[in-house]
Simulated scan of single mutants.
Amino acid sequence: MTVLHSTFSLERTYPVPPERVFAAWADPAAKKRWFVSAGSHELDFRAGGRESIEGRTPAGGELSFVATYHDIVPEQRIVFSGTLTGDGALATVSTTTVELFAEGDGTRLVLTEQDTFLDGAEKPEWREQGTSDWLAKLGKELQSE
C-alpha cells in the first residue's frame, strides 16, 4: 500500500476573454465536449455542486470521476476537489484551482493541482499529461465557438 503526493501547475493562453473561458467550464454541453472523452457526464456548476463522469478504463473496467465545487468566482476562479476510482478502487484524490486572468483581448489560465495517488493505480505524469490534453481540447472548443 503506497501513497504518493504530487503538485503541478499548467498555464495556457487563450485568444478569448475570461467570460468565454469561464462559460466553457460552466455550461454542461460545452464542458462535456472538451472534458469528457467517453461516458456519461453530469455537471452542477455552483459552489457545493458536483460533477461526475462514468466511463471505462482502457481494459474495459469501470472508471468514475466525481468532483465537488468549493469556490467559484465568475470569470476569475474555480476550486474543486475530485476523486478518481477505477474498478471500484479509489486511485486519486485531488484539489484543483483554476485561475483566469484577462490579458489584452485574451485570457491566461493557470491551473494548479495537488494530488494524492493511492497504491500506484495512477501516476503523476499520467495525470499531468491528461490535464494538459484536456486544456488543449478546451482551446479547440474556444476556437470553434
Rank of each mutant, 00 (worst) to 15 (best):
residue 55 G to A: 09
residue 31 K to M: 08
residue 57 T to M: 03
residue 85 T to E: 08
residue 24 A to P: 15
residue 92 T to M: 13
residue 125 E to G: 01
residue 69 Y to D: 05
residue 99 E to T: 00
residue 104 G to D: 12
residue 101 F to G: 04
residue 140 K to S: 09
residue 60 G to C: 06
residue 52 S to E: 11
residue 101 F to I: 00
residue 31 K to V: 05
residue 133 D to N: 00
residue 48 G to C: 15
residue 82 G to Q: 07
residue 95 T to V: 10
residue 138 L to I: 04
residue 35 F to H: 02
residue 134 W to V: 11
residue 65 F to C: 06
residue 8 F to C: 09
residue 33 R to K: 09
residue 139 G to N: 07
residue 88 G to S: 11
residue 9 S to W: 14
residue 15 P to E: 10
residue 127 R to E: 05
residue 67 A to H: 07
residue 95 T to F: 04
residue 106 G to H: 01
residue 49 G to E: 01
residue 44 D to A: 11
residue 139 G to W: 02
residue 122 E to V: 14
residue 38 A to E: 15
residue 106 G to I: 06
residue 33 R to P: 06
residue 142 L to N: 12
residue 79 V to I: 15
residue 87 D to I: 11
residue 65 F to Y: 10
residue 30 A to N: 12
residue 78 I to R: 00
residue 118 L to K: 03
residue 122 E to L: 13
residue 54 E to G: 04
residue 77 R to P: 11
residue 31 K to E: 02
residue 86 G to T: 14
residue 115 D to M: 01
residue 13 T to E: 15
residue 81 S to T: 01
residue 52 S to F: 03
residue 127 R to N: 07
residue 52 S to T: 09
residue 99 E to A: 02
residue 113 E to P: 13
residue 54 E to A: 07
residue 81 S to N: 09
residue 25 W to A: 08
residue 14 Y to V: 13
residue 46 R to F: 11
residue 57 T to P: 05
residue 85 T to D: 05
residue 6 S to C: 09
residue 1 M to T: 13
residue 28 P to C: 07
residue 144 S to E: 13
residue 46 R to W: 09
residue 8 F to L: 09
residue 89 A to K: 09
residue 5 H to L: 15
residue 28 P to Y: 03
residue 30 A to G: 14
residue 107 T to K: 01
residue 113 E to A: 10
residue 56 R to L: 04
residue 44 D to K: 04
residue 69 Y to A: 02
residue 30 A to Q: 14
residue 74 P to C: 12
residue 103 E to F: 01
residue 73 V to E: 08
residue 143 Q to H: 07
residue 72 I to H: 03
residue 52 S to N: 05
residue 24 A to G: 15
residue 63 L to E: 06
residue 116 T to Q: 01
residue 117 F to H: 12
residue 115 D to H: 00
residue 126 W to V: 06
residue 113 E to D: 13
residue 31 K to W: 00
residue 87 D to S: 14
residue 100 L to I: 05
residue 58 P to W: 04
residue 133 D to C: 00
residue 5 H to F: 12
residue 28 P to E: 06
residue 27 D to Q: 11
residue 18 P to M: 13
residue 59 A to F: 00
residue 94 S to L: 11
residue 27 D to F: 10
residue 5 H to K: 15
residue 45 F to K: 07
residue 73 V to M: 03
residue 48 G to D: 14
residue 68 T to D: 10
residue 29 A to D: 08
residue 56 R to N: 01
residue 10 L to H: 14
residue 108 R to H: 05
residue 95 T to Y: 04
residue 70 H to A: 09
residue 11 E to V: 02
residue 81 S to Q: 09
residue 52 S to P: 02
residue 23 A to F: 15
residue 29 A to G: 02
residue 30 A to Y: 09
residue 121 A to T: 06
residue 120 G to Q: 08
residue 58 P to K: 07
residue 43 L to F: 09
residue 92 T to L: 14
residue 132 S to P: 01
residue 90 L to A: 14
residue 129 Q to E: 07
residue 32 K to S: 11
residue 70 H to Y: 07
residue 11 E to F: 00
residue 98 V to P: 03
residue 42 E to G: 15
residue 120 G to Y: 03
residue 43 L to E: 01
residue 45 F to W: 10
residue 116 T to E: 00
residue 35 F to D: 07
residue 143 Q to E: 13
residue 1 M to D: 14
residue 25 W to H: 13
residue 101 F to M: 08
residue 107 T to L: 05
residue 42 E to P: 13
residue 40 S to G: 14
residue 128 E to A: 07
residue 16 V to N: 12
residue 115 D to A: 06
residue 55 G to F: 06
residue 78 I to N: 00
residue 124 P to L: 06
